[in-house]
Structures are given as structure tokens and as C-alpha cells.
Design a protein around this nucleic acid. Sequence first.
DNA 1: AAAGTGGCTCACGTTACGTGAGAGTCAAGT
DNA 2: ACTTGACTCTCACGTAACGTGAGCCACTTT
Lengths: 256, 256
Amino acid sequence: MENGYQQYSVKQLSVLAGVSIRTLHHYDDIGLLKPAARSDKGYRFYRREELFRLQQIMFYKTIGYGLEEIKEILDNENFDLITALRSHKKVLKDRAVHLKKLMTTIDKTINELKDKEGMITDKEMYEGFQPEEVESIKKETIERWPDEAPQVEERIRNMSKQAWKETKQEAEEINLWLANLIHKPVDHIDVQKVIKLHFDHLNKFYEVSEERYRGLAEMYLQDDRFKAHYESVKPGLAAFLNKGIHQFCDNGMEVA
Amino acid sequence: MENGYQQYSVKQLSVLAGVSIRTLHHYDDIGLLKPAARSDKGYRFYRREELFRLQQIMFYKTIGYGLEEIKEILDNENFDLITALRSHKKVLKDRAVHLKKLMTTIDKTINELKDKEGMITDKEMYEGFQPEEVESIKKETIERWPDEAPQVEERIRNMSKQAWKETKQEAEEINLWLANLIHKPVDHIDVQKVIKLHFDHLNKFYEVSEERYRGLAEMYLQDDRFKAHYESVKPGLAAFLNKGIHQFCDNGMEVA
DNA sequence: AAAGTGGCTCACGTTACGTGAGAGTCAAGT
DNA sequence: ACTTGACTCTCACGTAACGTGAGCCACTTT
């Protein structure tokens, strides 16, 4: 208030951010975005901090999260703004790449229609429509463990939409939590708790033995794509996760 | 049936396309995607033609259309599959570019948080979140007719979400209809009717005089971006629209 | 016949607002 | 002080696109 920050009414903020006034009311009602202040007549006023939070809400919405999920993420004590922004950027990058796949499907379909048949299979007609996470998990699993592919496919297919969303959110949160705990030793109980979550998370897709989990930890460091993935969330995260996993395995696959 | 095309049950199609069985039932109920056949026990069966239609539905959904809108588009006698696919591709290209804008907003926000203030304005915090059509219309109008900018901004802001969607759909349809009529002379009544729609469409944003409409027609040919836009929908469309507009103006801004 | 998988219709519930209504608030102009 | 225009509040019904569960039938394999 004394620092000269501007404050906004609902009308002003709705124009600034491109959201409706009804949306701002709704977000206040559900505790997702509380105004900085209310006048004695009930007017809502928002300041810079709320602007950052609204931006985060809008990023998470763009990526596909529901409002309740967003609230849980933002209210988590481990939430860190810069880390979250980096994560969003990575997701948007994936999405841009993913759009290429849809465009390829278009090209193939046009060729099919112009040159008449044989240019696209029935299955290829829908390539690119599934969320990029689904496709990337399928692809990576098939590459790494071809034996597991049918199991993974089956599990993914049988997941309800809601279960899938929760799983996706969990993966996101695990990364963020690890990023925020990176300054702690890997045997710290908080770190190990998150590693356990990571382990359980993977087990949703296939059975993960200790041997396989350790192998995965090494792959996080050795495989350029995995390493880039974790480093883009937070520099040093791949090595941190690698050590955390080995520690978890040393503890007998439990939180000591 | 005699041509060897495979047919699919709801389960098979849901797996193939990645949509739920409930969705297929729903689309049948609302007449959006009717099965090719029903058994005497009520089982639904889909063939190749339905696969193409479902693909279209999924493209339009991805782009942001509602189901009722999609139905109207697909059921229109002027609907052409290849033209529609080209149009989708263009929209997806725009979207990929648009994602870059969101990523720029992320970079700016991170800089703001790390270097502390002055790196991003309140307004810039939300750049990239508005639909790309809204932003491109604003941008183009400001570049072409700075005097009109406040008027356009005001009209766009006051449009309801529904009105905006209808306007967006109309722009899309006008392009598709023109593309499908491109083999007709520009003075044909069908062509002129669509030009009238085009004229009325523009008037939703600002007052368009004959002089200005003719100027716009020239710009569609001279401006690389506009020309590329229309050519990507259908080769030759920019010139066709140019001539059609001049003809419309010659007819006193009416359909003769 | 039993089991497993799949199909049908019916219908309530969900998420995130959009929309309209009625009434109060604020600031500028007369 | 009054009027006007823009803005704010709360309340509440309605919407789009399914998700989910239920009860019962259909088909194939053992």
C-alpha cells in the first residue's frame, strides 16, 4: 500500500487480464483468488501480488488444470513462482511440438483425399489428438521397456479422465516439490517422502523393481532428453533425483 | 460395405480415436455423428466416412468450436473436407506462434521476479492469454486504421463470449464458402451474397465505407500477410475476394 | 450353462462460469 | 441537492459436454 503499487477494481482487472467480472467473483467465492482488500461497501481491490497469482491461474488453466487442482497447487507451502513458470514454459514448448503432429495428420489426410487411399491408416487419422502427456508416456515406455508396453497401454486406457488428471497433477507436483527441496540432503525425510511419491507414481504405469528404479535413476542423468526435462524444471534436479532414488533404494524402498 | 471398408463398434472406435463411448452416444443423440448402421439389436457401426467426420469434429473441437456449431458447419452444403483441413492447419500454425507469445510472457515474468521490478508491466503479464483471433484483429486494425482502434477495442470488449464465438465462426464460414464458390464468376448471386456477409462481418468491428472496402480489397492482394492468409485457405482466393468486393461496390453495396 | 466382454438406454451429477435481476455506490455535471 | 452514467454487490437459474452408475440385453468362448 505504501510502496506505490496500483490497485485494481474488478472492472479494471477484467480488462487488464481479459477475464470476466463473473470469473473474478467466482474465484473469490471458491477461495482461488482473494482480493487484496474489500471496501466497507464490499468492493474488491486487487494488487500486484494478486496479479501474479491470477497469471498463474491462467497458465494452469491454459495447460488444462481444473480450478480446484490449481488452488491446491498454489496453496501448497512448497509452491515456488519461478519454478512453476519454468514448468509452464516446458509444457508450452511440448505443446507447440505437439501441434506439429496434428499438422502432419492434416497433411496425410489431405494426401489421402487427393491421391485416393493408402496414404493414411484409420489409426493415423487421429494422431495428435490425445494429450501430449499420454502420447509421450506411451512412446517413452515402448522405447525403454517394450515388454511393458501392453501393460502401460492397458492401464492408461482404463484410467478414468479424473484419475488421469490426478496422475498428471501428481507428476507435476512431484517435480515442483523436488525442485523446492533441492537444497536439502537427499536423505532428509521430506526429500524421501517425495521420492516415495515418485516411486508410487511410476507404479501406476507398470511394476517397478528396485533394480529398475535404480536403472531409471541413472537414465535421468545419462539420457539427454530426461536430463533436459528435469534441468528445465530446476538446474541440478536430475542429479538430485538420481541421488534421492539411490538413497530410497538403500533404505529398502521405504522412507526411513 | 462392398468396398472392403472396415467397420467399427463403439468400443473399437473409442479406442481408435481416443474418445469415450459416452461421447459417441452423445454425438449420435445430437445428430453430430450418426453411425453408418445400427443392428436390429441397436448396436452402432461406423465406417470410413464416419471416421473422416469424427476427425473433423475433433479438429473443430481442438480449435474451440462447440458441438452445435460444428454440426452446422459440417452439415452445410458448401462444406468441403480439403478446404476445411487447410483451414485447420492454418489455425494450428497460428496457435503455435501464439504459444511463443505466452513463453515470452513467462520469460519476462521470471526476469521481473529475479531482477526485481521494472521488467514487465501489469498489462504485459497477461500477454498471450487472449485468443489469437482477438489479438490479431486488434493488432491489424491498429496498424491499418489507428483512428479506428478505440472503436474496435470497445466493440471487442463488449462482445459477449457467445457473440464472439458466433463472429469467429462466421469469419471461418465466409472464407470456406468463398473458397467453394471460387469457380463461379464474381457477379454470381451466390458469390455476392457471401461478399455481403463479409461486408456485414467487418462492420461488426468498425464502420466500413465503400472507399475503405475497396481499399481493403486491394490490400488483400498487396499485403503479403493478407494474401498468404487467403491463399492458404484456397489458392486464388485473394484475387477472387478482391474482384468480388469491387463487384459488390459497383452494385451499390448491395446484392444485385 | 457360465463367464467374460461388449452393447443398449436412462438419468443424475459435474465444472466453470454466462446471464439476468434488483439494488446499492461513486463521481461528475447541472 | 438532484440526475446521470458507470460501476459494484449478491443471488440464482441455466448451459455445454459429457462422466458415471445402473439395469438389462447380446455375443463369443469355454
